[in-house]
């Protein structure tokens, strides 16, 4: 136990934690320890691999959503984008395109959806909630029109299957891709101008404008990045299931926001804890896994997640009152 707390500390100093970010890490470790005691199989390498593989789909999108929320924005379209782009990849593959080309097209489509969101928010100045909600229902509608509710299957290309099912050494490919994504976004957020500008916009939009930040460019880029990540998640899910499901990603928008908020990123913007977001995404997978293993009705999952969100937000409220100071 003490070794684990130490681990948090060194992680915390290496990676930036802000607000309730450290709270979620502690919650996660306590939960993992408790489940480890409750079921000896929980801590097996195989199960931990499963959990991370289950967490990646929400986690990847949540990394992008962390930037959106830190910028005081919101993106509800991610779940539909995931299904839509997964469908594009599957459809192109079935039409005989090279798997890399299909994946590239899918990622481009996700980016494009993000750009459209961004332009409508930043240039046309429509509320982000409305823009992305409209995009969410429109995209889902297009999927249903195109597939008539039938999944696209028969994705037997081994290269394509690598993305979601492969292993590099002991690490599952999707987990590896998620780690690389995490590091890249981490670098962007904390080490580059782009990250600074994103957080500045969330912290004080007017001040950000007056220090010469091109707010519209940054906003469009952040939404584009989120669209790209939703597509990446869509590709991984499609490859994992060897099928593009029309209903894929339904409800993801809320899971993603839950992961971000649990992780300590405030909806008021300005601060972001990417590590907290990763912990939030993993925590949700751990809760589901734990309930499955203990053979408890999984509808408790929603109750537990809701309670954790409330606790995280309360910790945020009573932990750091900087904004008012």
């Amino acid at each position: 136990m003490s070794a684990q707390t130490l681990g948090v500390k060194s992680l915390g100093s290496r990676f930036k934690l802000s607000g309730g970010g450290s709270g979620i890490l502690i919650a996660l470790i306590v939960l993992i320890a408790a489940l480890g005691l409750a079921s000896p199989r929980f801590l097996s390498l195989g199960n931990l691999t499963d959990i991370t593989r289950q967490a990646v789909f929400v986690a990847i999108i949540a990394f992008g959503a962390t930037l959106v929320i830190a910028m005081r924005g919101i993106d509800l379209s991610v779940g539909s984008t995931l299904a839509f782009t997964g469908l594009i990849a599957a459809d192109l593959m079935n039409r005989g395109f090279n798997p890399f080309a299909s994946v590239a097209a899918s990622l481009a489509a996700g980016t494009l959806i993000g750009i459209v969101n961004g332009v409508l928010v930043a240039k046309v100045k429509i509320a982000d909630f409305i823009v992305t909600m409209a995009m969410m229902v429109m995209t889902r509608g297009l999927i249903m029109v195109y597939t008539e509710g039938i999944p696209l299957t028969g994705l037997s290309n081994p290269t394509f299957q690598m993305f979601g099912q492969g292993f590099v050494w002991l690490v599952p490919m999707p987990v590896l891709i998620t780690i690389v994504t995490f590091l890249a976004i981490y670098f962007l957020l904390y080490q580059t101008r782009f990250g600074r500008y994103t957080l500045s916009i969330g912290s004080n939009p007017e001040a950000a404008r007056l220090v010469g930040i091109r707010i519209d460019h940054i906003k469009i880029t952040v939404y584009a990045l989120t669209g790209f990540l939703a597509a990446l998640s869509g590709v991984l899910l499609t490859s994992r299931l060897e099928a593009a499901m029309p209903e894929a990603g339904e409800g993801y928008e809320l899971d993603v926001i839950a992961a971000v908020v649990m992780g300590g990123t405030s909806l008021a913007g300005g601060k972001a804890s990417l590590l907290g977001t990763a912990a939030g995404a993993i925590l949700m997978a751990v809760v589901r896994n734990g309930l499955n293993i203990l053979n408890v009705n999984t509808f408790w999952h929603q109750v537990v997640i809701g309670a954790i969100i409330l606790m995280a937000v309360c910790a945020d409220k009573f932990g750091g009152r900087l904004k008012e100071a």
């Binding site: 580059t192 101008r193 600074r196 957080l199 500045s200 912290s203 004080n204 007056l210 010469g212």
Partner: peptide, 26 residues
Amino acid sequence: QGIFAEHSVGWNLTASSLPKLGGIRL
């Protein structure tokens, strides 16, 4: 219109001269 309240003095100081802190990595 001026400060980024929750961010550090250093962050606030360099807000309008970030390009001077390097091309990609700050």
